[in-house]
């Protein structure tokens, strides 16, 4: 563990909590893409299948359980609890355009042709594009509430910090995880234009619709 990865995990947790609290407190999921949240729940589900078979550390196990629980709680709030505020009109990104290429690629590019490795690779590739429905929804509605922009900021920051973690681990322990790195760089690039808007425009984001 290093400071970059720890900061990344904290940033990731903060992002998830920001969104969950926003929905819970405002009792509404307006402006939130339920599709992206389903994809994130799928990312955690397919990535943490080794939760009960491989013990890394208490931290690792606890964080996996927390991420799984919070992501499913978020999906539950959107599609069940506050479903009448769910903006299905604008949450229309064709997720099959993400899932099919990601499934195909995870069969082509993986470390081992075993179910666990392919599902892990699928989750890594899927995570890099899972925010697309949310970014698409924001461009469609032409705006994002300030809390949603904070959510996106911390979510983008987490994988940027993981890139720093991979650089650090390469230089200190010669470790590198090529699939995670390539996917993580692509994922972070997708946030770049949002980061620019977030920093220059501050809170409210008006995308040129």
């Amino acid at each position: 563990m290093n400071i970059f990865r720890l900061a990344g995990d904290v940033s990731h947790l903060v992002a998830i909590l920001i969104l969950l609290m926003k929905i819970w407190r405002s009792k509404s999921c307006a402006g939130i893409s339920g599709r992206s949240q389903v994809l994130f729940a799928l990312v955690f589900t397919t990535r943490y299948l080794d939760l009960f078979t491989v013990y890394i550390s208490a931290y690792n196990t606890v964080m996996k359980v927390v991420f799984l629980a919070l992501s499913y709680a978020t999906v539950y709030l959107i599609y069940m609890r506050f479903r009448n505020s769910y903006d299905s009109e604008n949450d229309t990104f064709r997720v099959e355009f993400l899932l099919i290429p990601v499934i195909g690629l995870s069969f082509l590019e993986n470390y081992a042709f075993t179910p666990l490795e392919i599902l892990w690779t699928f989750s890594i590739f899927l995570e890099s594009v899972a925010i697309m429905p949310q970014l698409f929804m924001i461009t469609k509605t032409g705006e994002a509430e300030s809390i949603t922009t904070h959510y996106l900021f911390f979510l983008g920051l987490y994988r940027a910090l993981y890139i720093a973690n991979w650089v650090w681990r390469y230089h200190t322990e010669g470790f590198y995880d090529q699939i995670a790195i390539v996917s993580g760089v692509v994922q972070t690039i997708f946030y770049c234009d949002f980061f620019y808007l977030y920093v220059t425009r501050g809170e409210e984001i008006r995308t040129p619709s």
Binding site: D50, V54, N60, Y162, G174, D177, I179, A180
Partner: peptide, 10 residues
């Protein structure tokens, strides 16, 4: 180095 099996990152 292919990282199979034990993955210690979230």
């Amino acid at each position: 180095n292919a990282v199979t099996g034990r993955k210690d990152e979230l």
